[in-house]
Design a protein around this nucleic acid. Structure first.
Length: 763
DNA sequence: GAGCACTGC
C-alpha cells in the first residue's frame, strides 16, 4: 500500500517532496497555511506534525477557523498525562497492529487516544471510521459530546455515537464513532470483517462484559485476516498482562503495552483488626465514626441492594440526629442519600446536591451516599473523600444444570475493592475504610471479578456466534472459555427452538431470530406469532417482557399499589395482564398522571414503547406480518399457544393441593410467585422466570392446555426422553387421550416460518 | 405473601 497514493494532501506535491513533512513558515502560497494536515501520511504520522495541526488556525477536519472555546479546551488537554506521551504513542501505534493500553482514572485515554488515532489513520480521507466501544450507553454519549467539543465540531457530524435506539452519526461524514460494545457486535453480525473501520478501540476491557469478551475473540481472528486493521485494548492495570498474552499474535510474543499514569489523589486504606460479624451494623458504625472524628468531606458507603440501603439510610439518619440532640456542637448536620438503579432519575440526581449547610457557628455538614455497585463504575460522585467498603456485592451466578441465573451476596474481588477505594481520591486525598482484615484481603479475595461470560446463560451469545459464522464454539479462542455444559445447554435450547439443526448449523429461522435484540425464546415466539393471528399482541408482550418491572410498590403504600394492580389484572395469566397494562397506557397517554395514579413506572412503560417500535421495524424487515383478531376469547387462546412455541421448556405441573408445582423435565419444586395474578391454580402453567429467593418461585405465569405441548413442541415432548415421575404419567394420560382422537397438527416448533409463509402464499 | 447488583442489543 502506498501512503502517497492514498493521501490526497500529497497529490499536488512533486514526488521527491512527498512524505517529507510540509514546509514550515507561513506565506501566501504556503500549502501548509491552508491545509493543517499537509504532509500527513496515513499511519506514518509523527507527534510533531499532530501538535502543529492542533495549533493550526484552521480545524484540520473542517478547514474552518477554530473557535475561542477550542483554544481553551486545548490548554486543558495539554495537561492530561496521556498528552505528554504523544511521541511514544505514535511510535508504538505505527509499528504495531495491536496495542494493549493501561491508564488509570484521569489519564485522559478515553477522550484523547481515539483523536490521536484519527490523526494517524486519517479515516475521513479513506471512507473509514475509527470506533471506540464503551460498556455503557451514557458513557458513549457523554464522551462523544466531550470529544466533539474538543475537536470543535458538531456532535453527530465528524464525531458521533451509536447506541441502541439512537444513531447519532452521519454516514460519509462521521469518522470517529463512540458506541456501545453490544452495538459493534451487532454490526459484526452483518459485516464480519468490520470493513468500515480502520482502527477499533475496546475501552474498559477489564470490565469483561459479554460483548467485549466476544469482540476480543472476533478481533483477534480478524487481525490475522485484515492486516490493515489496528486494534487497541484499553484496560485497568491489573488485567494488562492477560490481554497482552492473549493478543500476542506469535507463540511466545505478547502485544506491546502502552502505559499512562493516572491523575488521582492518594487514598489511605484502613482495615479492621478482626473480621466483622455483621457488615451492615459495622458499616453504620463506621459512617458515624467518620462523621464524629474526621475532617469535612463526603462519604460513600457500598451496600448490596435496595432494601439494605433504605434500611441503613434510616438508621444512619436516626443515630446522627441522636448525636446532634445530645450535643449540638459535636457534629454538623448529615444527609443520607440512597442510590440504586431502580430509583427514579430525579431521586438519583440528589447525589449531586451540595452537603447540608452548617448551623451558624457549628461544625460543617456532611453528605453520605449509600449505594450499590452502581457507584463503582457507572456513576461518579465528586467530593467523595471517605469510602466505606464492607467487601460485598450481589453477583450473578448461573447454574447450567437447571438453567437458572440468580443473585447472591458474595465477597467482591481485589480489583473491585481497589476501584471502590479509588472513588475517595477524585478531588483530593482520601481515606478508605475496609470492613475486613488485611489478611482476608490478601488471601481470601479473588484477584478479578469473574467475567460475565462465565456467569451467564449463553443462549443468546451462542446464537450470535453461530450467526457470525463461528463453527466450532467449543474451540473458539475465548479470553476465558465458558464451561462446556453452559455451551451444551445453549446449543440444546437453540436446537429445540429450531434455530439450529441437528448438526449445529443455523436454520433460516435461526438467522432471523439472531437479528432480533431478544432472548431466543422471545424471538421465536414473536416470529411464529403471525401463524396464530396475534403477532400484534405478542409484539406488545415481548416488549413488556424485555423491560424492567413496570409495577411500583412503595413500602408505605403497598395496599394502594396492590389495589391499583388488581384493577388491571387479567385472571387468565400475567402475560395477558402485561398486554392489558400496555394497551391502557397507550389509551391514557394524554393523561400525565395516569401512570402515577396506577402505581406504574412511566420510565419502564416508555422504554417498552421504544422497544416495541424497534421490534416492529425488525418484523417489517423480515416480513413477519403484524396481525390481530377480533374474537377476544379466541385471541386469548392463541396468545397462550404462541407463548408455548417459545417457552415450552418452561412448563410446570401442579402437584397436590398445597400450591406446589413441579417443573417439567427438571422436576424442581416451585411455587407461584406472590405477584402472580392468576385467580386459580391451573394444572398446567407456562412461566417466564424462575427466581430463587426465600424459596424457588416461578414468575410471569399463564394457564395453558397440556395438549398444546404435543401440538407445538412435539420434539421436546417426546415422552421417551422424560424422566419417570408424576409429570410424565400426567402427560402420558393426555397423550393416550389424544391418540384416541384422529389427526394431529404440524409441530410449529420445528417448522420454518418462511417456508410456512410461502406455503400460505402459494395457496 | 415477596423483590430488583449492574449493563447491553
Amino acid at each position: 500500500m502506498s501512503g502517497a497514493r492514498d493521501n490526497p494532501y500529497l497529490a499536488h506535491l512533486p514526488p521527491n517532496q512527498r512524505g517529507a513533512g510540509g514546509p514550515s513558515g507561513s506565506g501566501g502560497n504556503d500549502p501548509a497555511a491552508r491545509e493543517p494536515l499537509y504532509g500527513f501520511m496515513p499511519r506514518r504520522v509523527k507527534a510533531d506534525q499532530v501538535r502543529k495541526a492542533l495549533d493550526h488556525d484552521l480545524n484540520a477536519f473542517t478547514k474552518q477557523p477554530h473557535s475561542a472555546q477550542y483554544k481553551k479546551i486545548l490548554e486543558m488537554r495539554r495537561k492530561l498525562p496521556v498528552y505528554g506521551q504523544m511521541d511514544e504513542f505514535y511510535e508504538m501505534f505505527s509499528k504495531n497492529q495491536i496495542i494493549v493500553m493501561v491508564g488509570e482514572t484521569g489519564s485522559g485515554k478515553t477522550t484523547q487516544i481515539p483523536q490521536f488515532v484519527a490523526y494517524s489513520d486519517l479515516p475521513h480521507t479513506r471512507g473509514k471510521l475509527v470506533a471506540c466501544t464503551q460498556p455503557r450507553r451514557v458513557a458513549a454519549m457523554s464522551v462523544a459530546k466531550r470529544v466533539a467539543d474538543e475537536m470543535d465540531v458538531q456532535l453527530g457530524r465528524q464525531v458521533g455515537y451509536s447506541i441502541r435506539f439512537e444513531d447519532m452519526t452521519e454516514p460519509g461524514t462521521t469518522f470517529l464513532k463512540y458506541m456501545t460494545d453490544g452495538m459493534l457486535l451487532r454490526e459484526a453480525m452483518n459485516d464480519p470483517n468490520l470493513d468500515r473501520y480502520s482502527t477499533i478501540i475496546l475501552d474498559e476491557a477489564h470490565e469483561r462484559t459479554l460483548a467485549t469478551d466476544i469482540l476480543m475473540g472476533l478481533l483477534k481472528a480478524l487481525a490475522k485476516k485484515r492486516s490493515d486493521l489496528k486494534i487497541i485494548i484499553m484496560s485497568a492495570t491489573l488485567d494488562a498482562l492477560k490481554f497482552q498474552k492473549y493478543f500476542g499474535l506469535t507463540e511466545e510474543g505478547a502485544a506491546p503495552l502502552f502505559k499512562v499514569p493516572g491523575r488521582t489523589h492518594p487514598v489511605e486504606v484502613f482495615y479492621t483488626q478482626e473480621p466483622e460479624p455483621d457488615y451492615v451494623e459495622a458499616a453504620i458504625r463506621t459512617v458515624l465514626m467518620i462523621h464524629r472524628a474526621e475532617d469535612p468531606g463526603d462519604v460513600l458507603l457500598f451496600l448490596t441492594g435496595e432494601e439494605e440501603i433504605e434500611d441503613a439510610c434510616r438508621k444512619i439518619k436516626l443515630e446522627a440526629d441522636d448525636l446532634v440532640n445530645q450535643d449540638p456542637d459535636s457534629v454538623g448536620p448529615l444527609v443520607c442519600i440512597p442510590l440504586y438503579s431502580s430509583l427514579p432519575p430525579q431521586q438519583q440526581q440528589r447525589i449531586f446536591d451540595a452537603p447540608p449547610a452548617a448551623r451558624p457557628g457549628g461544625p460543617p455538614g456532611r453528605k453520605v451516599v449509600v449505594s450499590t455497585n452502581i457507584a463503582e463504575t457507572s456513576l461518579t460522585i465528586d467530593g467523595i473523600v471517605y469510602v466505606v467498603d464492607p467487601g460485598f456485592s450481589k453477583q450473578k451466578v448461573y447454574n447450567p444444570r437447571i438453567r437458572v441465573e440468580s443473585l447472591l451476596v458474595s465477597p467482591i474481588s481485589k480489583a473491585s475493592a481497589q476501584q471502590r477505594a479509588g472513588r475517595a481520591g477524585r478531588t483530593r486525598p482520601g481515606k478508605c475504610f475496609r470492613l475486613y482484615t488485611e489478611k482476608d484481603f490478601m488471601s481470601e479475595l479473588e484477584e478479578q471479578t469473574h467475567p460475565e461470560i462465565l456467569k451467564s446463560n449463553l443462549a443468546n451469545t451462542v446464537l450470535e456466534l453461530v450467526k457470525l459464522g463461528i463453527k466450532d464454539l467449543v474451540r473458539f479462542d475465548y479470553v476465558d472459555a465458558p464451561a462446556p455444559e453452559t455451551l451444551m445447554r445453549a446449543l440444546e435450547l437453540l436446537n429445540y427452538l429450531a434455530a439450529l439443526d441437528d448438526e449445529g448449523n443455523l436454520t433460516p429461522l435461526g438467522a432471523i431470530m439472531a437479528e432480533f435484540p431478544l432472548d431466543p425464546q422471545l424471538a421465536k415466539m414473536l416470529i411464529v406469532s403471525p401463524e396464530f393471528k396475534c403477532s400484534n399482541e405478542i409484539l406488545t408482550i415481548t416488549a413488556m417482557l424485555s423491560v424492567p418491572n413496570v409495577w411500583i410498590r412503595p413500602n408505605n403504600q403497598r395496599r394502594e399499589a396492590d389495589a391499583a394492580k388488581a384493577l388491571l389484572t387479567v385472571p387468565d395469566g400475567d402475560h395477558l395482564t402485561l398486554l392489558n397494562v400496555y394497551n391502557n397506557y397507550v389509551q391514557n397517554k394524554h393523561d400525565k398522571n395516569w401512570t402515577w395514579t396506577h402505581y406504574l413506572s412511566a420510565r419502564a412503560l416508555a422504554q417498552a414503547d421504544n422497544v416495541r417500535a424497534q421490534l416492529q421495524r425488525s418484523m417489517e424487515r423480515f416480513d413477519v406480518d403484524l396481525v390481530s383478531m377480533t374474537d377476544e376469547r379466541k385471541l386469548y387462546v392463541n396468545i397462550r399457544q404462541a407463548l408455548v412455541c417459545g417457552f415450552f421448556m418452561q412448563i410446570a405441573h401442579k402437584e397436590g393441593e398445597k400450591g406446589n408445582y413441579l417443573t417439567v423435565k427438571d422436576n424442581q419444586v416451585v411455587a407461584l410467585h406472590p405477584s402472580c395474578g392468576l385467580d386459580t391454580q391451573p394444572e398446567w402453567v407456562i412461566f417466564n422466570e424462575f427466581v430463587l429467593t426465600t424459596r424457588p418461585y416461578i414468575r410471569m405465569v399463564s394457564d395453558i392446555r397440556p395438549e398444546w405441548l404435543f401440538e407445538f413442541a412435539a420434539s421436546y415432548f417426546d415422552l421417551a426422553s422424560f424422566p419417570d415421575g408424576e409429570t410424565k404419567r400426567a402427560l402420558q394420560r393426555i397423550m393416550n387421550k389424544r391418540a384416541g382422537k384422529a389427526g394431529g397438527r404440524v409441530d410449529a416448533g420445528s417448522s420454518d416460518v418462511r417456508d410456512a409463509k410461502k406455503r400460505k402464499k402459494n395457496k
